[in-house]
Write a protein that binds this DNA or RNA. Structure first.
Lengths: 238, 238, 238, 238
DNA sequence: AATGAATGAGTATTCATTCAT
DNA sequence: CATGAATGAATACTCATTCAT
């Protein structure tokens, strides 16, 4: 029952290459304008300035066209992220975090409208796996970064889990900003918040934890006010 | 082009009321089983044990039926959250955060299968606004909590923005856990991570920020211990 | 890959019964006029004075419609034949043969144009089996007749094989007459030939067989009782 | 509405000739493998190792290609039959009949798969006439044979009609055997039955005819010369 | 002559919606 | 009020045929 989403044939002549390009580009536009349902093969072909027949010459069905579009976008997306990660191998944790944040934000600047539609529609094209793979790969990269700085992390922070949390959080915040609050992006405020939330997460132990869940104030000494016990105990900066 | 999604008439008799209920319930089941495309009016009517004609007696079109379902679900969802918030008005920040986290997790336990479908399909029903409203209301509640403990927050934390960040983050993590990693939910690990990331975010200054973005260890004098990252960063210790 | 050719639903109201009838009748006409390819669902629906939707309300696809038509025709066809056979149970061999011949001719008078199309197109509707079943049942009936008169048959005639030969021969001759030479039908000439060929086949020993296949003359008794006048006239063996 | 089925141009170069051959051969194979519907011009061209364009260089349309194939096959078919007839001009009636039977069986051995498809599909190519011509020519040949032995035939047997009957019968039996009962062919049983039915038909008067259709016994001469042994055994008229 | 890219009318089928009963 | 038969616009997809290269 699964549908073949493999492109039908590879264009050999220059002319047909142009057709394929036009089709994908048209698919992107029509998808953005009309959504998945509204993106009829006829409309896509028309927008591409090509006949339906030509569409089916290169894609065996509608899904395969969308799949190709997803692939193109996903590849650009992942490309952007991995490039941003490239220089992080022996960066500090701080640099690493900043790079990750930037990477996400930058990647989301690639055709955000299409990205939105694709994210919404991807489940029904059965390409969910591939897209989830993006997030999995990013999570893996984050985990590597964390492992490289393991001693800097709170001892209760499991790197794999933390990576998942970070990836999920960043993705969500980036999304929110891109789609609903672009001004937070332009002003750089969102980036700061992202850094704040991540660095807080990776520092320990958070001050709040010192207070009992019952609201009783734990008296703190003035000097130690913001230092955590472990920091002090570890004597790292002693 | 916009479609009227208002229910057609209000049921006055008990029998009609039963029909309306059966229809919504049927819609829910069919949606879960067959997805949005597969949820034909015929199927819904059949599942409800009612004729198509009757369906259209109460809902002018398919979308309005789904809209009603969304409304029912959203209302239950927000209800669960707001109830969880109710006792928080003069709770401590810690209690408040825990309540928020719990609220989200609990709400997601209401018909998660339907929730998933609805979240995916909602954009195309044009009820996005309503659903976004949920998140807006939750954000508002969080903001109130933060404002009640304003002095506990890092001074650079804008309560409105922080509330947005928190809401977004919690929603994303809850989602991820519900859909992809339910075992993290059962073990309570996710809840701990949520608390960790939020408390870190609301504590200050995070230790990590004390280190320069360039990875070089910035030797810190004891006095500088309390300097915020930005302060440190801005002044470059110079 | 096989297609479901079961009718979709049984009509409950008088109105829908009329629709179903109209559809089959229209299918018959359109099939005759345009052949299988030309018999588009649109054309059939139009001819039936009904919308395409209605067609698909009762038949899940084009094939099932044709299958229904085949069934209707085959049933009438077989009905005619078996009725004609009914009175043959204890008839003489001669009466039996005449009844069989008549049965075939009569059955072929039921909508011969449709019969022709159906016979041609049946292979591709996958109802071949059912139709072949007709011929198999008829063959069986013939075999029974032959067995009832076994002692009258030439000893070398296997009843099952003879039945197959008879059925095939009758079917072919009937067909030929119906389609290409209707005048032979009207004049009763074909019926006579059919009887002649069958009775010759079931009599023995045929004169011709007395001559060896190698042309060597088989010595016969003087009286040459079996020589025909004309044979005698030839004086070949005189 | 009628379509031109004339080949477009006659190949003049060896290369073109090869192409034309390859096309017909490919058409034959594809037709057998995929049936008429499945035999697309693209598939035929591909199988022939030629482009669609080339196909249309030699055949103005699909039908003309099939027509050419039909012609090729029909010509081989008739060729085989007429060759088998050639030696029959002054053969005995018995020899003639055997030759006819053999001819039909032999002809059907030429690409029976293609023959089957062609027989089924031929009506829709509008080449029915040509194919019917085969049977007409064969009938003519049979008629000639019969006329050559006129005096051997029962006086009531009209040679033209008898030829039609014989041709039809043989064709049907051959077909049946080829398609449904090949074992009857291999064992030679069918051939025997064919000879039996024909010789019975051409002998006269058949015994059965002596009995009235009403079962009344027709008084016969004392010697009962034509009574079969078994009949005698019955002692019905003893 | 050959190629194969492009065409687009034509086909089966679905499904939200209406309306006669 | 309820029913379910009827509607028909809309959609994905095919394939014979043309024509620029």
């Amino acid at each position: 029952m699964t549908i073949d989403t493999t492109p039908r044939k590879r264009p050999r002549q220059a002319r047909s290459h142009a057709t394929v390009d036009a089709l994908i580009e048209a698919a992107s536009q029509v998808l953005i304008e009309h959504g998945y349902e509204g993106a009829t093969t006829a409309r896509v072909a028309e927008r591409a300035g090509v006949s339906v027949g030509s569409l089916y010459q290169y894609y065996p069905n509608k899904e395969s066209l969308v799949a190709a579009l997803i692939e193109r976008h996903a590849s650009a997306f992942v490309g952007a992220i991995e490039q941003a990660f490239a220089g992080t191998v022996d960066a500090s944790l701080e640099e690493g975090l900043r790079a990750i944040i930037r990477a996400g934000l930058d990647a989301h600047r690639i055709d955000p409208a299409l990205h939105k539609i694709l994210v919404e529609q991807v489940p029904r094209v059965g390409r969910m796996a591939e897209v989830m793979d993006i997030s999995r790969r990013v999570t893996k990269s984050i985990e590597q970064l964390l492992r490289a700085h393991l001693r800097r992390l709170p001892k209760e922070r499991d790197p794999a889990l933390a990576a998942l949390v970070i990836e999920t959080t960043l993705e969500a915040l980036t999304h929110k900003a891109v789609i609903e609050r672009p001004e937070l992006l332009a002003s750089g405020k969102m980036e700061k918040e992202m850094y704040a939330i991540l660095s807080g997460y990776l520092s320990s132990p958070p001050v709040l934890e010192l207070r009992s869940a019952h609201g009783a104030q734990v008296p703190r000494k003035k000097k130690a006010a913001r230092r955590t016990p472990r920091e002090a105990g570890e004597g790292r900066d002693g």
